[in-house]
């Protein structure tokens, strides 16, 4: 996103670049046989990654759509459910993810300038931040279990919707619907975080072994795109699930 000149549609960069990389080709072990040159390969990979991100957005879009429709339909119950979420753990997690996005940017920058050890360092820090997020998320889930806010036979919701001091009782069934969506959305997001951590661990190992050079670091860039995507989804989840009903 930031360091890659080849966003989809920017064909101008593409037509200029091949001449510059032409003489490297013969030596480039990363160039796959069916591409004409490294620039074409890079552009293809980058476009592919952006398309994948589009599919991911559509994937989460279905759940966001369901959440918004239900929130309008069952406002009180959703507001009451939202007030039961732990805003501090959510906020800390948001901060953790924002920092991890910064480390990803720094990793890409390090790759671009060919600093192998710095690159590995930032990748490892990113993975650690991702794991921190997951651990905190685990504590949050545990809290839900204790409060019987996990949908299913044991679900129990007696809390009321605090509407600026006015206590409004809500239908526990609809609160269960809220928590169903909460778990579906954050669970799917956590799954993407787990995949991201695995991916970045792999990238860190590859970087350690010296797979990447300042001429070839497309996997780092594309992995970074994925990480940013997962972060951005959280940046939408946090206000929609945690913050939206706090008007006191």
């Amino acid at each position: 996103m930031h360091n890659s000149p080849a966003t989809p549609g920017s064909t101008a960069a593409q037509t200029v670049a091949p001449a510059a990389t032409m003489d490297h080709e013969a030596f480039n072990p990363a160039l796959r046989h069916h591409f004409a040159d490294a620039q074409q390969q890079k552009n293809a990979a980058s476009l592919g990654m952006w398309l994948f991100i589009v599919t991911e957005i559509m994937f989460f879009g279905g759940m966001f759509c369901a959440y918004l429709i239900y929130r309008v339909a069952h406002f009180n119950a959703f507001a009451a459910g939202s007030q039961q979420l732990n805003i501090w753990l959510g906020a800390v997690n948001t901060a953790v993810l924002i920092v991890s996005s910064v480390t990803v940017v720094l990793a890409v920058k390090a790759a671009e300038s060919g600093k192998r050890k710095v690159l590995v360092g930032y990748l490892v820090v990113t993975v650690l931040l991702g794991l921190t997020f997951l651990v905190i998320k685990g504590f949050e889930y545990a809290e839900k279990f204790e409060k019987h806010h996990v949908p299913g036979p044991t679900f129990n919701f007696t809390e009321k919707f605090d509407d600026n001091g006015k206590q409004i009782p809500v239908n526990p069934k609809e609160a269960e619907l809220f928590f169903s969506l909460y778990f579906a959305m954050t669970g799917m997001h956590a799954l993407h975080m787990i995949i991201g951590c695995g991916l970045f661990t792999g990238l860190a190992i590859m970087a350690w072994k010296g797979h990447f050079t300042s001429d070839y670091f497309t996997p780092i860039e594309n992995g970074g795109l994925y990480w940013h995507l997962v972060d951005i989804i959280w940046i939408y989840l946090f206000p929609l699930l945690y913050l939206i009903s706090r008007h006191t």
């Binding site: 759940m63 239900y70 949908p151 036979p153 069934k173 609809e174 269960e176 619907l177 169903s180 579906a184």
Partner: peptide, 20 residues
Amino acid sequence: LVAVERVFHLGIFDPRLGGD
């Protein structure tokens, strides 16, 4: 979401929970 509703008893589309 359909599978999750069957496995974990989440009720995204369940009319008894106000799902649609």
